[in-house]
């Protein structure tokens, strides 16, 4: 059985089902209760679970730090940071505590927390509501970074994240919250973390993308005459290199796409892993199609910043003609 859902509806449904499944799960964050979240990802959840859905004060460090304590007590904390760009106010709790607790206590204390947060541009939002910081989180050992690109994966990945015994940053692309309605499996549905998906098979080149860039990449590929394989990374860290390497060994050409700034972005890591395990299969330098090394601009200029299908198509043409 499947259900036609938008991505944000799939998130909401998953939270509901996971709360039913796990009585120790607590959902909390700014405006997630009465208001149902500013994107409605927790709509009406509090009506169903009045004792397990909480509005918190506007305090991001607290939202993350509380989860460390809740987890230690045996609860399953699922926190929402209202916009990813505000997670910096709690960044120290992620980096200094949540991510390293298992390691520094040699496995005697873990943080089974999921931090959900809307990220990325393309919705004409206010300043500091559009950043993509997945590379920053991926640079923190002990942290998992998961980014769905469609409703079915949103459900399956979020269920896996919530059930995972380690801290997961779950980045939800705001641009895709309501962009498509797709079939989502009903009932228990999980997608394993750290497994990329080949969402379109091809022979001539590989395009690697994640989150909000996957639909843009797919539409670029559809506009191209070449046969391009598209890999949806799905988990930014720990990264599934094997799927990328296997595809690039087959195609010999690769484009990596992301919204974040180019320097130090995750594309650099993808290129390095190709370098490790598929260099001699390459027929062209790997191309990066990314945001620029500028602070994410206000929305009058966001279309100029954010890769779209045309920019991605040109990137694909460059690797094919190299």
């Amino acid at each position: 059985m499947t259900n036609e859902l938008r991505l944000v509806e799939a998130i909401r449904q998953t939270l509901d089902e996971e709360m039913a499944r796990d009585e120790s799960m607590v959902v909390y964050g700014e405006d997630v209760g009465v208001n149902g979240g500013v994107f409605r990802a927790t709509q009406a959840l509090r009506d169903e679970y009045p004792d397990r859905v909480y509005d918190t004060p506007v305090a991001e460090a607290a939202i993350i730090g509380l989860g460390v304590g809740l987890g230690a007590y045996g609860m399953t904390p699922v926190a929402e940071i209202q916009f990813a760009s505000f997670a910096y106010q709690g960044f120290h709790q992620i980096q200094q505590h949540a991510a390293r607790m298992r390691s520094r206590t040699r496995g005697t204390l873990n943080v089974p927390m999921t931090v959900r947060m809307p990220y990325g541009g393309g919705i004409r939002a206010l300043e500091l509501h559009s950043e993509s910081f997945e590379a920053g989180y991926a640079h923190i050992p002990g942290l998992k970074v998961v980014i769905p690109s469609n409703p079915a994966d949103a459900k399956g990945l979020l269920a896996s994240a919530i059930r995972d015994p380690d801290p997961v940053m779950f980045l939800e692309p705001t641009r895709l919250y309501r962009a498509m309605r797709e079939s989502v499996p009903e009932g228990d549905h999980t997608v394993p973390l750290s497994e990329a998906a080949v969402v379109r098979e091809g022979e001539d080149a590989t395009a690697v993308a994640w989150g909000g860039m996957v639909p843009e990449t797919l539409s670029a590929v559809e506009a191209s005459d070449a046969s391009v394989e598209v890999v949806d990374l799905r988990t930014a860290s720990p990264m599934d290199s094997a799927t990328i390497v296997e595809s690039v060994r087959k195609t010999g050409r690769c484009v990596v796409v992301h919204e974040a700034p180019r320097t130090g972005g995750l594309a650099a890591e993808v290129v390095a892993r190709i370098n490790d395990d598929a260099l001699y299969h390459l027929e062209a330098p790997v191309e990066r199609v990314t945001g620029y090394d500028v602070p994410f601009p206000l929305f009058a200029r966001e279309d100029a910043y954010r890769p779209d299908s045309e920019r991605i198509r040109r990137g694909i043409e460059r690797v094919l003609s190299a």
């Binding site: 004792d51 460090a61 607290a62 730090g65 509380l66 460390v68 304590g69 230690a72 007590y73 505590h97």
Partner: peptide
Amino acid sequence: SQSLHAAGLGWAQEMA
């Protein structure tokens, strides 16, 4: 920074 973990434990005790 640990004060927030203690608040989380204390909140868990309240919920439980």
